[in-house]
Amino acid sequence: MEDTILVLEFPIFGEDFDHLGDATLRIRESLLKALNTPILNASKSREKEIVRKSGICLYEAEANIVIHAKFGFIKTILYKQKIVSIAKDIGPGIKNLILALKPGYSTASEKARMLGFGAGMGLKNIEKISDFFFLISTFGKGTYLLFEVWRNNTTLGGVKMKIRKLIEELKLEVLTNFTEKDLDKIVEEAYTCDLLSNVLSKAEEETTWITVQSNINVVGVATIKRIPIIIVTESNTPEEETLKKAELNSIIIARTKLSSFEISGQLYNLLKKQN
């Protein structure tokens, strides 16, 4: 494929606990180096995030071959738009995939458990973190796992945007003190709602929250849902206490004169238009 940047492949041996993780660390290092080259012009924080995600998934995949299988390999391909990894092994295979994906289910040996493995979280973790996950196994033969971590603008949800840009485009008035890092956080969608319990139960984690509410409980909910920015509409003014609590939790509170309807519309178009 023409946009292939890097291909890395390492053999992994069953029961080779001493070297468990070495292949992942090597791949991780190569990815960091490759992503650091100017042609890819990845932002520092995004770059770190995709390498970390790939690293975690690779480590779990590598551990599974060492712990559960006889022999296999892990292979990582860096494309312009995504990092694709494959872990394939000859081994016992997985009899029941649904069971294997259940948090806490583990058949890890006593030896593996002594070393800190066997939480039964590995596969679930890869599934959760990756943007695409594919697992197939033939009982008695082996297992094939493929997962992808996507770069900018390639999530299923649509366009991703930095908070910095969002604030600029929507002409928001930022009320809290913030760090560069807060502005570098990325949002890809929003949830407009004034009922806290609805946000708690329905909003996606890490979403942008648009609300007319500005009391301190808003920050509590945002913290739980890991919401990086709250847009307070109709020029409502939060109390000092609310702002303080938001700052403490690295949450940005920004204000607009517009109504929730108008600002939602603008943001919707913004996230769509970019595509």
Partner: peptide, 28 residues
């Protein structure tokens, strides 16, 4: 003490974390 639990929970944490554990082999 379970590394996958650590990986699962800390996976999205951007702030510096202190890991407290009883695991002493290089995997940690």
């Amino acid at each position: 003490d379970l590394l996958s639990d650590t990986l699962f929970v800390i996976s999205r944490e951007e702030e510096p974390v202190l890991l407290i554990t009883g695991v002493t082999n290089p995997s940690v």
